[in-house]
Design a protein around this nucleic acid. Structure first.
Lengths: 250, 250
DNA sequence: CGTCGCTTTGATGCGTCTCAAGCTTCGTGG
DNA sequence: CCACGAAGCTTGAGACGCATCAAAGCGACG
């Protein structure tokens, strides 16, 4: 998955511009773009942060794909969310001392770390920005609930369709979808971790979706042949993503 | 379920006192306790707010039990969280225009509504309080993720044990547990809605838990006979609840 | 004292898991 | 440039967990 965030724009400015319900003032834009960012690369399959960590900084995904996941003590793994470029997935560490999930690099990853202290200072001076970031964390909660519904109340076939619909909309919103096709660098085993099924069953369901003519997935790229039909199968309603108007072309 | 919130304390003061990581200043306490509250009663099974609503106020549960739930368009219902007295379950409406879930009264319910405007004014004057309420919404997100893990990665028997462990800890934190026993006014059908299984299967799992000597559930009251064993079965680790020290006696 | 909602139990079927084996792809070293 | 190994994909057979359908028991309340 290639970088989609312009190098000349501070990632937090980008994020807030796409999420906030107001236009940034000059002072706010200045405060955001002078936040200190430490850029770090991670290899695929590395953990960026781990459950029970006590982070002292938040981070934005600059390029690549990241995944929030939890595991039962018994070792069963569940991916809770994927993070696309521009996302700030561990903002909760600013207000909750200990992390209740891990975040790993699905692909090679470029990450921008911002110290908690700088964020707190910024929020004191610019309370509207605090509200905007609060909003981003609420949207993440909304995604978590939709995943809980999807994974416990839909069978594997519509469940997978739903995941593909969500990813398409979210990747499209950051310009990573071309002609109903986007990079999806997940193994079938990893897809199973997200959907709560085994890789064997992922394979069979994928075959069904392929045979229905809805999608093809190969070479780490998903192509949707019939967006409307896929949405119908998935019962997909994007309300829970809380996108603003025109964030998505679909 | 009887009221546990003292009538003479403003519910929002109560909530923040149990959640915030700092001691309230006099001004902050004053601001909270002068928030206008409109108390309203709901009968069991009524909806307090519905998915796609655009609320203009938040509310605190004063007494009774409430449930956040979503349904698929096909009609399958999933409870995402239970709310005990003191909780403020729809705080996200302050920052997200349209609700992505419904909240219903499980039992008869007493609710205190507070207008968004009053909250926004308070947050402008007292930014630390905004941080404290932000924290409460993050904790809800954490619960949603744990439920997603529980419902998709544990089988019905440990899954139910996990739900009981969570409810016991959270109800204990608000003083509603006596001698490892608490009110649990849910039908087996409703338990199925929370656990993602049918009421028939709830009945069989409940029987197993009873036969194991772990619990009894009758007359709307759950008694845990062996807390340690129930936790072991459930692989229960309360970290995700983000309680502060001494919030729970267990 | 009959009715209605809830609980309990049985029989059968479906969705997904588990185990197992063969196949494809691709990167690496000879 | 080919051989090989490792990782991932594909497919089959049988087992298991939970759903579904159905019916009978129980308890509370008018």
């Amino acid at each position: 998955m290639s970088a989609a965030i312009q190098a000349d724009t501070h990632p937090f400015v980008r994020k807030i511009e796409t999420v906030a319900l107001f236009d940034l003032s000059l002072a706010e834009r200045e405060a955001l773009s002078t936040l200190p960012v430490q850029v770090t690369r991670f290899d695929a399959h590395q953990d960026v942060v781990k459950e029970f960590d006590r982070p002292t900084r938040c981070f934005a995904v600059l390029s690549g794909l990241a995944a929030t996941y939890k595991t039962t003590p018994e070792g069963r793994r569940q991916v809770m969310a994927y993070h696309v470029p521009g996302d700030v997935p561990d903002f909760q560490s600013l207000h909750l001392e200990v992390l209740d999930f891990s975040i790993s690099a699905v692909t090679d990853l470029s990450i921008g770390f911002v110290p908690h202290g700088a964020l707190r200072t910024m929020f004191e001076d610019h309370p509207r920005l605090a509200g905007a970031f609060w909003r981003t964390t609420l949207i993440e909660g909304s995604l978590a609930r939709e995943w809980a519904l999807n994974n416990s109340r839909r069978e594997a076939y519509p469940r997978m369709a739903h995941l593909f619909c969500e990813l398409m909309v979210r990747l499209d919103a950051v310009g990573l979808v071309q002609e109903d096709s986007f990079a999806l660098p997940l193994t079938q085993y990893e897809l199973g971790d997200a959907l709560g099924i085994t890789s064997v069953h992922v394979n069979r369901v994928l075959k069904e979706l392929r045979d229905s003519g809805l999608i093809t997935l190969s070479g780490g790229r998903l192509t949707v042949h019939d967006v409307a039909a896929l949405r119908t199968v998935a019962e997909f309603d994007p309300t829970y993503l809380h996108l603003r108007r025109n964030d998505s072309r679909r």
